[in-house]
């Protein structure tokens, strides 16, 4: 089974210090990938990042777990929207070969939840979103559980498949270092068969980031006052 996990380094807001390395959903995707690889002997794991050299750091935890690591970048992707990234990821996945692609449900910064489904669309494979538990079935199909409001739902599908992973997935999974991984392999658009022009036009659809003045929270004296406010807000 060829498993690819998509990783990306957290980006801080303009002028603020760098946050942690991986978002909670990306970290969960990596944990889930390691669990699924271990449960299916003979499987391979590749971690893929699309970003500038700073994203090599996001691949380091996967390399330490023995994964092959690949980073794709081209300046045409700078400031491009989800669709450009999804096209680039899909083209890279095709080149790497895959049975299962895992990624975080949504990034901590943007919170769109779009990259996974859009990548599945460009790969032409089914996707399952917001997995909070994931395991192989004896039949070789993948079983995914996800929360739906106040209930849960269990779904299954056969590879090839893309699954987006919620932050709560595989919590407690022990990640045992498997020696230093190899160096990060660098891919460019040439290698995956895309032209910059195919991606650059998507820069117009991303919108602009601004930092509007924001009112600060009303500081309450104690928990009892908050409980009262909550009762009033119902």
């Amino acid at each position: 089974m060829k498993i690819i996990v998509l990783l990306r380094r957290l980006i801080g807001p303009p002028g603020r210090p760098e946050p942690g390395l991986l978002g909670a959903c990306e970290a969960a995707a990596l944990r889930a990938a390691v669990r699924l690889q271990a449960a299916c002997p003979g499987s391979s794991l590749t971690a893929l990042a699309v970003g500038p050299p700073r994203d090599d750091a996001a691949l380091a935890p996967a390399a330490a777990l023995g994964a092959r690591t690949v980073r794709l970048w081209n300046l045409a992707l700078e400031g491009a929207d989800y669709d450009a990234y999804a096209r680039a990821i899909a083209a890279t996945c095709r080149l790497l070969k895959y049975d299962l692609v895992l990624c975080g449900e949504r990034s901590a910064e943007e919170g769109l939840g779009v990259i996974g489904p859009a990548t599945a669309e460009h790969l032409g494979i089914p996707h399952l979103s917001a997995a909070c538990d994931i395991a192989w079935q004896p039949s070789g199909r993948l079983r995914v559980e996800r929360g739906e409001g106040t209930a849960a739902r269990r779904l299954e599908a056969a590879p090839p498949l893309l699954v987006t992973v919620a932050a709560s997935c595989a919590v407690g999974e022990r990640l045992a270092p498997a020696g230093a991984g190899g160096p990060v392999e660098l891919f460019d658009l040439d290698r995956i068969g895309l032209l910059p022009e195919e991606l650059r036009h998507r820069q117009r659809f991303e919108g602009t980031v601004i930092a509007p003045p924001r009112p600060r929270a009303e500081i309450l004296p104690d928990v009892a006052t908050l409980a009262q406010k909550l009762r009033e807000s119902r």
Binding site: E109, E206, G207, A211, P212
Partner: peptide, 17 residues
């Protein structure tokens, strides 16, 4: 929509696209 945990906003004007 809020981005970076609500520190910033990303804005998109529909007529621009």
């Amino acid at each position: 929509r809020p981005v970076h945990g609500g520190v910033c906003e990303r804005r998109l004007a529909i007529e621009d696209i």
